Simulated scan of single mutants.
Amino acid sequence: MISTNDFKTGLTIEFEGDVYQVIEFQHVKPGKGSAFVRSKLKNMRTGAVVDKTFNAGEKIPKAHVDRREVQYLYNDGANYYFMDMETYDQFEMTKEQLGDAVKYLKDNMIITNLLFKGQSIGVDLPNFVELEVVETSPGIKGDTASGGSKPATLETGMVVNVPFFINVGDVLQIDTRTGHYIKRV
Rank of each mutant, 00 (worst) to 15 (best):
L172V: 04
A56W: 06
R177C: 10
D107E: 15
Q26K: 13
I111V: 07
D66N: 14
V159Q: 09
G142F: 04
T9C: 14
V171P: 01
F164L: 14
V49C: 04
G147R: 11
F128S: 09
K62V: 12
V19S: 02
L114F: 05
R68F: 04
I23R: 08
S39H: 07
V37S: 02
F116R: 01
K62Q: 15
E132W: 01
K59Y: 09
G77R: 03
Q26Y: 09
V49M: 12
E24G: 06
N79D: 12
T87S: 08
V50F: 12
F7C: 00
R67C: 05
A145R: 11
A145T: 11
P126F: 02
Q26G: 13
T156N: 07
M44K: 10
K8R: 14
T12V: 12
I110H: 13
Y81C: 12
F54E: 08
G139I: 02
D76F: 04
Q97N: 13
E135G: 04
E135M: 15
K8L: 14
V133C: 01
D175T: 03
K40T: 15
K59Q: 12
F36W: 03
T144C: 04
E92L: 08
V160L: 07
I121Q: 05
D100P: 13
V162M: 03
I121G: 03
E130C: 03
V37L: 07
T4H: 05
Q71S: 10
G99C: 06
V22I: 12
E69W: 10
G179K: 01
M85R: 10
K29H: 15
M158G: 04
K183P: 09
M1R: 10
S149L: 04
G10Y: 08
I2R: 04
D6M: 11
D66E: 15
I121F: 08
N43W: 08
L11W: 10
T94N: 04
G157I: 03
I174V: 13
S137P: 08
I2H: 00
G17P: 00
V162C: 06
Y72Q: 00
M158P: 01
P151G: 11
F165H: 11
